[in-house]
Design a binder for these strands. Structure first.
Length: 549
RNA sequence: GCCCUCGUAGCUCAACUGGAUAGAGCAUCGGACUUCUAAUCCGGUGGUUACAGGUUCAAGUCCUGUCGAGGGUACCA
């Protein structure tokens, strides 16, 4: 028995009582107040409109007809049109056993059925170190991939590596000029080139490797290749520091070299979706429902980012991905509709593409906003951030807020490792419970396994606080499921904080290992379940659950 | 100008996608370790959900408008 079974039961009662309203949406939620029970169902209000009757009567009628399995739920009550259900004691204890048995199967569910899925995230140009903003996307994308993976999707994590075009040319030439400087030659370094100190480092490395006879512009391709590869390695290192690994790196030049770009252009021409104007090739995006046409090939002969992204997405479909997740920053909000429209016009089912947009990170230092620009090099790198606050806090902080909210990141706060960083609060819960279990072992209080613990012993768990803890644990699978369905991973850290907020006061008020052996075993069984959930949740977030702190 | 995303306690953010009396943390004030970890706990203070209308049994959430922030509106990515 679980939440889903209950939902089916209620749906059945409704369609029997009110056949005309069989399709009504059944919402089940947590009531705002404990005296309203554990589950609230406001369905009578929606039914009232359809069957044109008083919602209070309807609620009563449904409650009376809910012949629920009494082993799991106490009789249904109604209150002002809401139907309220309360978990039975035996249901709570059954769940507690399940959690102690195997947390992964307790929270497991299958949405994906092995659907071949790609999650693309970060994909920053290798023209500079990753910034704090990329960090948010990295953590968001990776956590989403984790969630989809445990939801039954077959997930590939991919990084799109832009290794061609103007940005790379600028990068290569920036390095070349710094290299010239190192050779003692005078240079005029353009304002719109990459100003950062890391360019000088690259030039130095280049000089160490290739000598000092290559400053002539004809060697630019060598600089480009060298610099892009170096930057890409640096980016991989940065991501690895916060525990992020990819299954696949996709190089942009593959799209060009393989002829796929050309193929797409031919298809667009055949469908009369492109035309020449002012020396450039345009897409008729205005005919696809968008506000204006867009350039595909610049008059310089170079493809635009939009065109490459169209080809890339076509290629994703051609590689057999059935679900395509793109994690983008807010600056892509205007380009992805064009990409989707054109890819759709090429005959692909773009409803299989899910675009997750996250808002920008505003970086502050003691309340002062820091303006960031890669070009000007006045940015804070992800490396610097991780070095200051550690990988765990970095990950937790970035996943704590919903993707759609502007994230304010204050360096002073992050650096201080203060109470404002709730990752410690959650981890401390794990460490505390581990400590209790160690203590219990020394006192010969065993942590019983779910098969051997008797109902008689579980009867010691009879306080409201203990029941509330178990009820909170029962919510865990719903939280994970919801996070996966809605692409809202921030629900997980929010939940873990809430669970910890229930555990820590419990710890203060109730002694786990006491003189009463059976009571101690019961409480040990409970806190172990809490640790299982905390540890599993942290694991999904890529954060460790320390046994000691 | 137009298009996205937002606007919730002094600050950072939640609020189960339309549900019951809008919740946490930080900050601030005051308390708690001879007992399994004080990175903890307990209590006080804090709100016309930017503003004005509308939709309905019910609006922080939906629709319209105004104001404010960020992003886009490039033959940059």
């Amino acid at each position: 028995m679980n939440w889903t079974n209950l939902q089916d039961t209620i749906q059945g009662v409704i369609s029997r009582l009110y056949p005309e309203a069989r399709d009504v949406e059944l919402v089940m939620e947590k009531p705002p107040q404990p005296e309203f029970g554990d589950i609230a169902i406001p369905v009578a209000f929606s039914l009232a409109r359809i069957v044109k009757r008083n919602p209070i009567e309807i609620a009563r009628e449904i409650a009376d007809n809910l012949t629920l399995n009494a082993r799991f739920f106490d009789p249904a009550e109604t209150r002002g049109g809401f139907i309220n259900l309360t978990y039975s004691r035996s249901f709570l204890m059954a769940c507690l056993r399940d959690i102690n048995r195997d947390i992964e199967s307790f929270r497991s569910f299958n949405l994906g059925n092995g659907v071949k899925t790609q999650v693309e995230f970060v994909s920053a140009n290798p023209t500079g170190p990753l910034t704090v903003g990329h960090g948010r996307q990295a953590v968001l994308g990776e956590t989403l991939a984790n969630l989809l993976s445990l939801a039954g999707y077959k997930v590939t994590r991919e990084y799109y590596f832009n290794n061609t075009g103007r940005q790379i040319r600028f990068l290569g030439d920036s390095v070349r000029l710094r290299y010239k400087e190192l050779n003692g030659e005078p240079v005029d370094f353009p304002d719109d080139y990459y100003q950062g100190e890391y360019i000088v480092d690259l030039a130095q490395k280049f000089r160490d490797q290739f000598g000092s006879d290559l400053s002539d512009k004809k060697h630019l391709p060598l600089f480009e290749k060298f610099a892009a590869e170096q930057m890409m390695n640096q980016i991989k290192n940065t991501l690895e520091q916060i525990g992020i690994k990819y299954d696949s790196y996709f190089n942009e030049n593959q799209l060009i070299d393989s002829g796929k770009l050309k193929e797409v252009l031919e298809q667009l021409e055949a469908k009369d979706l492109s035309y020449l104007k002012d020396g450039a090739l345009w897409a008729r995006t205005s005919q696809l429902g968008l506000d204006q046409d867009r350039v595909l090939i610049k008059s310089t002969g170079e493809p635009t980012y939009r065109l490459l992204d169209i080809v890339y997405h076509k290629d994703k479909f051609d590689r057999g991905f059935q679900l395509i997740v793109d994690v983008f920053g807010a600056d892509h909000q205007s380009t992805y509709p064009d990409v989707l429209a054109v890819v759709g016009a090429l005959g692909y089912d773009v409803s299989r593409i899910k675009v997750v947009i996250h808002q920008f990170v505003t970086l502050t230092r003691g309340g002062e906003t820091i303006k960031m620009s890669t070009r000007k090099a006045n940015f804070v790198t992800l490396d610097e951030l991780v070095e200051e606050v550690g990988p765990e806090a970095t990950r937790f902080f970035f996943i704590l807020r919903s993707a759609n909210s502007h994230l304010n990141f204050d360096l002073e706060v992050a650096k201080s490792q203060s109470d404002e960083n709730p990752v410690f609060y959650v981890q401390y819960g794990c460490a505390r419970i581990s400590s209790i279990i160690r203590f219990a072992q020394n006192k010969d209080v065993p942590l019983l396994n779910p098969e051997e613990i008797e109902e008689r012993i579980l009867n010691y768990l009879d306080s409201p606080e203990e029941h509330n803890l178990i009820k909170m644990l029962i919510e865990y699978p719903q939280v994970i499921r919801k996070a996966a369905i809605e692409f809202n991973p921030h629900l997980i850290p929010q939940y873990l904080i809430d669970l910890s907020k229930l555990f820590h006061p419990f710890y203060h008020d109730y002694r786990v290992v006491s003189g009463d052996l059976e009571q101690s075993m019961a409480r040990l069984f409970l806190v172990n379940a809490v640790r299982e959930v905390l540890r599993d949740g942290l694991n999904i977030l890529g954060i460790s659950a320390p046994e000691k702190m």
